[in-house]
Amino acid sequence: MSWFTKALKSSVGKKFVLGLTGLALVGFLIEHLVGNLLLYKGADSFNGYAHMLESSELILPAELGLLALFLVHIVLAITVTVGNKSARPEVYSMYASKGGRTLASKTMIYTGILIFVFLVLHLVHFRFGVQSLDAEGRRNLYAAVLALFRSPVYVAWYVLAVCLVGLHVSHGFQSALRSIGVNHPKYAPALEALSLLFGFLFAIGFSSFALWAHFFKGGS
């Protein structure tokens, strides 16, 4: 086994790659959130932005890169979780935290699985499901967003899902940084606060689109 394969297969190496892909996905979420803010500007801006992205020559490599990031992140998360379960074959009859664990940290794999389900549905609805065109001949994503969020059930599911994304990131961002070795008394508290901030931003930011579409645009 080469030094590189050996490093990647080690517990530290797996967590390093899991962390790096997680950080890259946080970067994608920031871009996605900022791009979606154009919803508030109106149909022309939002559809124009989507059209600009989809007609770019870079869209295919970017989407393949994103797919690779998600796949590597998911496969490694499952591998690490399976390894962790086998490291304690017999569980305690009683367990109580002494202060380290949080709701976010102990539910990472569960929030991750639900986010994956949400991601598949999200792609089916918005990436592959919208075929109608606007007056300019662009995919009318703006109308699709308003139409989908007309359903209170879909709004509730979407808000729940993006809150889970926020919960996942609130632990994941700081955990990823530690996994790649970034931790120092000088800046660790700031990075932990940033991790929480990202979690809140994603939960509130993405939820706002669904709530705005449902309550203020009436889905029309």
Binding site: V80, G100, S105, G181, N183, A188
Partner: peptide
Amino acid sequence: GFGNCTNESECEAACPKEISVRNIARLNR
């Protein structure tokens, strides 16, 4: 056969010598 670290810091909270999890980040580096 030990498991992987998921950075929960429960170890630091339970350590009788209060060893900091910063040592885990240093180990990674």
